[in-house]
Design a protein around this nucleic acid. Structure first.
Lengths: 225, 225
DNA sequence: TTTTGTGTAAACATATTGTTAATGGAAAAC
DNA sequence: GTTTTCCATTAACAATATGTTTACACAAAA
């Protein structure tokens, strides 16, 4: 399962931050490398072919966004994970820039724990999306093609529906608390109303036409045939 | 499981913020306490032994970081959850301090909803630990899947029924006083009538169909085959 | 017998979820 | 650039499961 250590390249012009991030990720078993500015980041990235690149937005020579755009234009970096570090003041002006292909962004000031957990989450997500098709009974859920199949016939789910179903089905039988579902599918910062999960559950049940999502009242939901 | 209310200590020198946070967390069922500066925070923390401490970084007498470091050096606070509140201006100068052992941080200005969801997430992470499957004879109680199985056939219990059974079965043979049961399953602040436990016990007996819950008259109940 | 504690069923209240329709926004099609 | 379609979310209400109390029966101890 846990194969070779993932390589992470961290680019920031503040040595302190580099050190803290590097230290904390190394402690988690990642192989860390650092770059001190935009040009350095590009160079190192080409050399190392890291699995994840953490880019500060504000850096000398090239901003994180420029680095990201440059790398994304290369075939070898299509699938490389990228996280932006943004000062809060950057936010509005640069959120658009996140459309350049970042997989997540973390705002400063940085809590090592938060960053580490985001990184872990990202790798988890990738590991799953990397071909981990879930099959339970006659139901197959393919995260690569974004398709659910029951006895061969394909069913199209919307994004949230799919993510929710995939989460539940990834551990069949296990109950997911509503909170858990929220933070896994919607994220910790997004707040949605109480009925949102229900509505999506209903759509899933409706579309699948098979009774495979069970309610555990007062607790949550589970996937089960 | 969802037992007694968690104690949360909130330390900030702005009364307004204290009130907002306190109000919103109390609404969620937490037991909230407040401290108005660093020294106060330390003192209250030692008195209350809260489950979670929310610390503003900038406070008179002692900063949140200092409070955190001080508490973390005490054995009693090794496992206490700590969240920092950081203003934007704190940023780089205090990032180092965040490695003192915070479990999360939330930046100002604070959205009550975000804070509440972070708090919930944090507690959820902790609660996850006690999800061990209990097996006694041919009865299996699995809190992860939320089912009870007798000889392989699954039995669905309601939440309270399940929690009650899980409590008893977690220490087979041991007698649980009615008081104990109340505080463990219902929590200390919930008041219910005398017959409530009985009714749940009866439902458990009824659903399980096996005589495994024994009455110890004048004392309580125990799980026993 | 009286007292005390428990078992049980039904009634009631509440909490939680299910469902539908409406809204606004984003993406896709034109 | 405009229209159209689809999706995520919310609000409002219905439906249901669950939790609690009530009332009384029953049993064991005092």
């Amino acid at each position: 399962m846990e194969n070779k250590a993932k390589k992470i390249l961290i680019a920031d012009d503040e040595p302190d931050i580099l050190e803290i991030i590097s230290y904390n990720l190394a402690k988690e078993g990642y192989e860390t490398y650092t770059a001190k500015d935009g040009n350095d980041a590009v160079e190192q990235a080409r050399k190392l072919q890291p699995d994840l690149i953490i880019l500060d937005i504000m850096m000398p020579y090239k901003t994180g966004i420029e680095v990201c755009q440059l790398l994304r234009s290369l075939p070898a970096f299509q699938d490389t994970l990228i996280i932006f570090l943004t000062a809060l003041s950057d936010e509005s002006s640069h959120i658009k820039g996140l459309d350049t292909g970042a997989d997540d962004y973390v705002s400063k000031p940085i809590s090592p724990k938060v960053l580490v957990s985001r990184v872990n989450a990202l790798f988890r997500r990738i590991n799953k999306e990397d071909g981990k098709t879930v099959t339970v009974g006659n139901i197959t859920i393919d995260p690569v093609r974004f398709i659910v199949a029951i006895n061969g016939s394909e069913i199209v789910l919307a994004k949230k529906e799919f993510e929710l179903l995939y989460l539940l089905a990834s551990k069949p039988g296990r109950v997911f608390l509503r909170n858990e579902i929220l933070s896994q599918v919607w994220g910790t910062d997004v707040i949605v109303g109480d009925r949102t999960i229900d509505v999506h559950i209903r759509k899933i049940r409706q579309k699948l036409g098979v009774d495979c999502v069970t309610t555990v009242k007062g607790v949550g939901y589970k996937f089960e045939l």
